[in-house]
Write a protein that binds this DNA or RNA. Sequence first.
DNA 1: ACAATAGGCAAGCTTTCACTTGCCTATCAA
DNA 2: TTGATAGGCAAGTGAAAGCTTGCCTATTGT
Lengths: 102, 102
Amino acid sequence: MVADDLFKALADPTRRTIIDELAEKSGQTLFEICSRLSMKHRLGISRQAVSQHLAVLEAAGLVETRREGRYKFHDLNTAPLRQITERWLGPPAPSGPEENTP
Amino acid sequence: MVADDLFKALADPTRRTIIDELAEKSGQTLFEICSRLSMKHRLGISRQAVSQHLAVLEAAGLVETRREGRYKFHDLNTAPLRQITERWLGPPAPSGPEENTP
DNA sequence: ACAATAGGCAAGCTTTCACTTGCCTATCAA
DNA sequence: TTGATAGGCAAGTGAAAGCTTGCCTATTGT
């Protein structure tokens, strides 16, 4: 199931914080995310742990990655989140609200 | 954290199925839910397991209960689900669509 | 070439989670 | 009251999840 990966990815508070950070600033590298979790959120977590979290998020389709040289940038994809509310809250509002990401 | 209970509750596929069933027919008893999981979804699961799932859903605010005699009816409350999308997808649409729970 | 940086792979550990089993309480019908 | 129904509590078990540790590859800079 696809929903399985999605909900499992959202189950962990650290992963939700990562989503928050990627929502605030897209295209971050692994080390950038590690720094933010450590500084802003006081999360004493290893680099590998964050890497594993990102793998889970990517498996759920919530994070997409692009490589450039030795850097790997992570971008948030909120699309899978919509299927959550559509499942139990019905289809979204009739008028598309704030689809402005220029 | 409140969100913690919510996402944890949604993490399990059986609990999501229970939500589906309560969305389809509100006010079911424990045995009624057990029957549906067994018949419709072919889930070989004990009554206690379902009871524990319902407790988790109730802790998350997704299920509310009311007792009548020896029966305990379970009702779905989708309100907590809205905070999910509001967190990462922004506020809901300007016009509230099908808010009919009188 | 060499070192430093950015990231990956995999084994091992610890905790959490889902589920079962066994027993107990409360309400309803005969 | 007795038996059946609806549900609850708690200990125990097996599997999965989160995290660490150690080592390895690839790219960049001097």
